[in-house]
Structure formats: structure tokens, C-alpha cells
Amino acid sequence: MTRYAFLELTSCGDCLSELYMNPEINKLLEEGEIVYWPAYGIVGDPEEIGEVDVTFIAGTVRTRRDLEELEKFRRISRIVVAYGTCSIYGGLNGLTALLEPRAIADGEYVKLLMPTVKPVTDYIEPDILVPGCPPTREVMARLAKTLKKYISGGKPEKKIFLIPGEVLCKHCPRRPSNPEKAEMPGIRDPNEVVDDGRCFIEQGILCLGPVTANGCNHLCIRFNHPCMGCMGPARGVVDQGLNMIGSIGSILLKSREVKLLFPGLAKELDKLRDPMGYFYRYTLPKAMLTKLALRRRGVE
């Protein structure tokens, strides 16, 4: 009988519940046995659980206990699935990456915290990675299919990344009709723009589509919301924020550069009040600048 463990590190607690309720996954679980899932009362001393076939891990490593459990479960598990964007890039939980522990906890609790928050992938090598906040139903189905292959034994030779990884723009329903003329006409507040069905960037709305992996089937975009980057960086993207700056810096007001000159362009760029919040909502612990900032604090 296949033995499953559910390990929730610091997280919102939603991902694994949703995963459990997915019919295809649920079927697999029914045929097997859940040996560890404290949130649902299945508690046990990991030392005594013995070998686990598949461990689903969600959340980030924020506390020292997170790290202990994570390392333990990696040791005892045949297959580790890093589930959800938090576990791979930090996700929303990662937004505390730059805060000192003292800023988020009091007194003796400070000691329980790691100096910063990091995704699971910074400490262990998972076998399967499932980004998404939360992962979509299609991705869950793909996960069920993949797991079936290894139920009776063995593990993937190489890390499996369960979404295609191409940039969201590739198949975007709002692709610009004439890419040569594509231009970001300024930086606008999405609430003040009457959406006309065109590419968000062409309307002056910051959309992280160019740097974000497609694993969502343009869910937000189809519902008239620009991409916020929850799937994490697309394949080849080094850093969502820095790559995005490279991209929008190229096409922002490109036809008026010579007229506006540097001061005019600066004025427009100043409208982007919180670039860090825009660019790294889901990947702050992975940002190159986070690494630099932490190094200066002596954390890295």
C-alpha cells in the first residue's frame, strides 16, 4: 500500500486541502494510506513513521521547525512533491523575506524563526515541482497521472516540472496584433483604465505575462485581470522583476522617448509606486536583490 505524507510548512494551508479534494488525487489516496497530516489529526512522530512513498510539501521554510521537518521528510520519502508556488518560489509567504525576525515576532518566538523565509527548493531537491497559487485542476490531473507511474516504485530520473514553462504571452488571447508597433503608452492605474480587450501592457497596465510561466491557462487574463505572476518565472527568466524591467524599459513610451527626454520618462516611471510589490508578489525570496540585501545583513 502506497504511503503518503502531507507536510504543511508555513503557508496559508489551502493548497494541500484542495489537492486532497481533487477527485483524481483523492482516488490515489483512497487506494493508499495517509500516514502523516497533522492538520487533519494524523499525527505521528516522523522518526517512527518509517519509509514514505510520496510526501506533498506546501509552504515555505520560515521556522526552524519547518526546516527540521523538511529535512527529515526528504530523508524518509521516496518522492517529494513541492506543491504550490510557496514551496518553489516563496509565494505570498515569501513577502517577509526582507524583514528581520524581530519585525514579525515577539520575545521568545523570535528564536523559533529562521533569519529569513525561503522556499523548500532552497534546502532540498524535490522530485516533482507543481507551481501555482494554488495549482489548477489541469495541473493536479497531470500530477495524478505522473504519480501513477511511480506508485509501485522508482522515482523520476530528472526533476519534473509540471507546467510547460513558456511565457504567458505565447498563447495569450490578448496578444498585440502588430508586435513591431507594440508600445506601453505610460504607466496607468488599472482601476482607471477602461479595458478594451487589448494587451494589458499596450493599455499601460503592468502585466507580468512576459516573465511568468503559463500554468494557469490565462485564468486572470480571461477574467480581465493582468497577470500577477503567481506561476513563477517562465523558463529562461532569471528574475521576474529584473527581466520585467528590461522588457518594459524597452517599450514604455518608445515613440515619445526623444520628445520626453529623461525627465519626462522619469516622471512617467515614478508612477510605478511599488515595483517590488508588483514584480515579486510571488517570488521575493528568489529575487537577486533579496540575495544581495540578505548578504548585507549577514544572512547569506
Binding site: I245, L269, P275, M276, A287, L289, T290, L292, A293, R296
Partner: peptide, 8 residues
């Protein structure tokens, strides 16, 4: 602008 937010 971004660096400033990161404290650099």
C-alpha cells in the same frame, strides 16, 4: 527605484 525598496 527597485533597489531602494530592497534597502540597497
Amino acid at each position: 527605484k527597485l533597489m531602494k525598496q530592497f534597502g540597497i
